[in-house]
Design a protein around this nucleic acid. Structure first.
Lengths: 200, 200, 200, 200
DNA sequence: GATGAATGAGTGTTCATTCAT
DNA sequence: GATGAATGAACACTCATTCAT
């Protein structure tokens, strides 16, 4: 038998360092040479595990999108009461913290690249569609008991994402916590209103 | 009197080509060498007029933000009736076309760079604050005649921008015209509702 | 007795793939990595069986020269009549097909390398000396019965090789079948003339 | 006015160093980095004047083929007597010195590359066609006065080139001056015979 | 004012080879 | 015997920038 494959481990290591360099230096600074130096290895080490930079990039986006999903749901899955649950979700999604839950440097690097790279776009698209489905499920759950009805579940889920993203960008542009928090509260009320839930 | 300086003209020319290369090749492809080739000059020509790339970049963002503002207001300034006017504004801001009014490649390149460049961030921030003021003015205008009152003008303006940006991003991610148009309509209704204006 | 060594088999396999890559990609493309990929193994596999690239190269030249000789003689060994035999040899050696019997890409790669590598030069030299001896033997054979005499056997053999090689190169340069065929016919007549054999 | 263009000068300089490195290190060693080091400049200097390596290579082949032609004709153009002239040409073409007039390392590098590069092949082909025309002209010249007639001029010119090339290759393979000189003499006699000229 | 030569560090990628399992 | 991780240098080429004319 030959030597056992370290590829999955090494690839994960490389992606970790890639992420860190991306955070520190931005996409324009995240060169293979720089990542290698940050790892303390030679550039050849990286291209040994990823046949080229694009492959590495795509794998990073893939892993990030997966990780995001994993960190998402656990936050509210322990809450049983549908009413409290939807409140929790809205609090999270429209919070400033949430807007900074993802590293902006990394997220918008990926987002920007999705404008010209079909694969990256597809990965991000899938992640959002998954998130969309989670939201529709949650909305449906809180309607059943009669808390709200006659609502266009899908439209509201889309609206939640729209507002979430809008707050995220506007937060970056304004850097004004008070205004962003006010907007977040208003967004929450709007959604609750759409759901016919008492805003209190 | 001496010869008139050609610098402003040349700088504008360079920025035009910079913009075009940015659209075609993205920020990673918009190198000085590439812009020079696109112009049919030597790289030295560009660095002769801009002391370095950052200066050129900032000037581009500056001119873009200025241009955006100039193309904005004219669109509704001829409409006298305050009610129709606010409808027009909302139709514009929440339309898919509007979301693609700015070249995404260019806008998000600038936006991404604003994450690490204070000057660029400041320029974008100022542009949005200007837009914010325009919106508050318009909202106030349409309230005065009694069409709506008791509203937090600033909060609504912020909310409009949040939704506008959210739609813009979500449009890029989804690439689903129907859903985006539905979200746009809903966003408009929400704002009209906040303004206590009949949605019809 | 232990397990039988697979080394000779593996080495032959590697050389086969080396040859194929050489044909397809030329000497500059025949890297160990590329050969390994073509085989579906790791580069280490190759350097495990050949201590370095030069060794592999030399072994390839060796095997090629051997193979050439093996494919050569059988072509005319069944012909008994000395006259017909020499005609057959000349027809073969001066034919366009013969000029393309060896893969040019491979042959001239080896030939080029022989300019700087003594071992490769020596191997090629030996092959040609062997061929030279075959030719002198054949010439002598066809003289004995009185078909021709008073000829400088060695000189004619050399001349045959000279013309054969000249046709080979000129064929590559011209890519003009008619002219090459004409030259081949003329070369044959010249040799027959040197051998005092009736050209017909 | 800007700075005056040094491009032709620099390009020629680079080609000179390229040639020298090619002679010393072979095609595999003639990397841009190595040529740059040999010149005492940075690699960027070279790619500033040649957009890529292929362009540089083709320009080298072009200049070599041109140079060959220029050094060729002068050698016999002063000889008036057609008989002596043709003797001189044959002496030259079939001499060992002639076979080494061109640097073999360089010539066969180019020749090898012509197997896969159309442009290089075309340049070499053109050079040989030019040489072919020179030879036919010379042959015709020496026939007119009645020295020889009823000969296929073109076929003999081709034959001369075939033998010249054959001697060149065989010289490299054998490295046996005596045999090559003997072959050269014999080649000369053959051609004179074809021309119906007394071999003396 | 304008051109273009020159610099020197950088890019992603591939190389032959060695070492550990 | 065989596999594959790891090395370190090299590759062709591009970069932003400076300098000389």
């Amino acid at each position: 038998m030959g030597r056992k494959s370290l590829a999955p481990v090494r690839r994960a290591e490389i992606l970790k360092h890639f992420y860190e360099v991306l955070v520190k230096e931005g996409i324009e600074g995240a060169s293979i040479a720089r990542i290698a130096k940050h790892m303390g290895v030679y550039p050849g080490h990286i291209t040994h595990y990823f046949k080229n930079k694009e492959e590495m990039l795509i794998e990073l986006v893939e892993s990030l999108m997966k990780e995001y999903a994993e960190q998402l749901i656990p936050q509210w899955e322990k809450i049983q009461d549908p009413g409290k649950r939807i409140h929790k979700i809205l609090d999270m999604v429209f919070s400033v913290d949430w807007a900074e839950f993802f590293n902006n440097r990394v997220f918008f690097a990926c987002f920007y690249l999705s404008l010209s790279n079909r694969k990256i776009h597809s990965l991000i698209n899938q992640a959002y569609e998954r998130f969309f489905r989670i939201l529709t499920d949650e909305i449906e759950n809180c309607i059943k008991p009669g808390i709200s009805d006659k609502v266009d579940t899908a439209a509201i889920a889309d609206m939640m994402i729209v507002q979430m993203e809008g707050i995220s960008i506007y937060n970056i542009i304004l850097r004004d916590k008070q205004r962003i928090e006010a907007a977040s509260r208003m967004a929450k009320e709007i959604v609750l209103d759409l759901l016919n839930i008492d805003t209190g």
